[in-house]
Amino acid sequence: MKLHEYQAKSVFADAGIPTPDSQLAESTEEVLSAAESIGYPVAVKAQVHVGGRGKAGGIKLVENDEEAREAADAILGMDLKGYTVGRVLVEGAVDFVDELYVGVTMDRGEGKPVAMVSEKGGVDIESVAEEDPEAIAREYIDPAFGLQPYQARRAVYDAGIDREVAGDVSSVLTTLFSLWDDRDASDTEINPLMVTSSGEVVAADAVMNIDEDALFRQPELAEMEEDSYEDDLERKAGEYGFDYVRLDGDVGIIGNGAGLVMTTLDLVDHYGGEPANFLDVGGGAKADRIANALDMVFSDENVESVVFNIFGGITRGDEVAKGINNALEQFDEIPKPVVVRLAGTNAEEGMEILNADLVQVEQTLEEAVQRAVENAQEASQ
């Protein structure tokens, strides 16, 4: 479960990490009221789960009421990388002299959590890791003992952080790990952690993602779950019980099993397409769940074609085929071309049941993905 910036900052602030004064707003008048209360200059920040908000026009620094009104009118209701902005965070501007990155996540290759620090804050940390990996200092953490003070200090010094703020940065990093550990998080990070002209450190952004399987142990965070949904699609996925992530592409992907869906995403990319989503309907998916999955993918205006990748273990191919037929027969005209690949339990029976007037059937996953990519490319021409 992803927390919004304002939610993550609330958790961070409660743990003692310095954050700017801020208020959430859902209208232009609320933005003006918040800005007056906090005091100019303020930043008006779209609350959506996407990176690069600033470059996309979702963050604006304003100096007065007129600029605040213009920013609110521009950001509220805007489409930001496929998401409609319904709320903004009005936040006191930080007079900074440096921007840092600090974060904690799980390194699955090492099988350990890792604490990270970099002087190159304020930019996409994935790009830094790819282009200049030595710019990120890493400390691997033994889960049995946690992040030790000497490790936090070493990560900060290895990153080249100024000694005047090294102690405060180490403290923030230690707190991030404590939150990661205590709150069943998958990621906790601050980018940027700003160093002010007076030598203080302030979390100008906040990221916190929670393991959904552990929410029963985190009642306070579980209460934030409904508000953490970005739009109707994610809310609908929660209601249906699907594992769903919205992406930027135009090829809708439906599968049963995370590994199967990830393989399909990789193949879409391999054949020159762009995935529009990750949608796992789970094992044992019957006709009604398949129909719900199609309803979700068709509801995404970015989708130009759909590929179904179903392998029958618990799931039966004939049940999947019935679900596809039932869903598509509701339409006078199929909204987007659907390509289906069935394998495993009752796959042959499913192939016979599928209505060839409604779907395109392929025998192999590679052929199905290639056809779906071609369908999307033709639709965009």
Rank of each mutant, 00 (worst) to 15 (best):
G103H: 07
A204N: 06
V102F: 07
D184K: 12
L147M: 05
N191G: 01
V90F: 02
L173A: 02
V128H: 03
L215Y: 10
R138Y: 06
I136D: 03
E164H: 14
P192L: 00
M224F: 12
P149S: 10
V123P: 03
D124Q: 10
L173P: 00
E99F: 12
L173M: 01
A135C: 09
D182Y: 09
E134V: 08
N209Y: 03
A144H: 12
V104Q: 01
I125V: 08
R154I: 11
Y157T: 14
D158K: 15
I190P: 06
V128C: 09
E212A: 10
R138S: 13
D182W: 15
E223C: 08
D213A: 14
M116K: 03
V123F: 00
K120D: 09
V90E: 04
M106N: 12
I141R: 02
E131L: 14
L100I: 06
A93L: 05
E212M: 05
R153V: 11
R87W: 12
E225C: 01
D213H: 14
D98H: 13
A135P: 02
P143W: 07
A166R: 07
E126M: 08
V207A: 14
I141M: 06
E126G: 07
I141H: 02
S127Q: 15
R108T: 13
E134W: 03
V195Q: 01
A166F: 06
A204H: 11
S118M: 10
M106T: 12
R87N: 11
A185R: 04
P149Q: 02
A155R: 08
I161V: 15
E139G: 09
I161D: 03
F177P: 00
Q148F: 11
A135F: 04
A115G: 00
V128N: 02
A152T: 06
D142A: 11
E130V: 10
L147V: 09
R153C: 09
V104A: 05
V128L: 05
S197H: 13
D132N: 14
V156C: 08
V88D: 03
I210H: 03
N191A: 10
L100C: 02
M194C: 15
L179E: 05
S171Q: 14
A222W: 00
N191L: 02
V117L: 05
V195I: 14
E220T: 12
T174E: 12
Y101K: 09
L147A: 03
A144T: 14
L147Y: 02
D182E: 15
G92P: 01
D213S: 13
R153G: 04
R87Y: 10
D142L: 15
G199S: 10
E110Q: 14
V201S: 05
F177D: 06
E134P: 03
E225P: 05
K120F: 07
L89K: 06
G199L: 06
N191K: 09
M106S: 11
R87A: 11
S186Q: 09
D168Y: 04
E189T: 04
S118W: 07
D98A: 13
V202R: 01
P192Y: 01
M224W: 08
N209H: 07
E226Y: 15
A135G: 06
V97N: 09
D205F: 09
P192R: 00
E212R: 12
I210T: 08
S171V: 02
A166W: 10
G121I: 04
I125L: 00
R163K: 15
M106K: 10
Q218L: 06
A185N: 08
D162P: 11
V128I: 11
V128K: 06
I141N: 02
F216A: 08
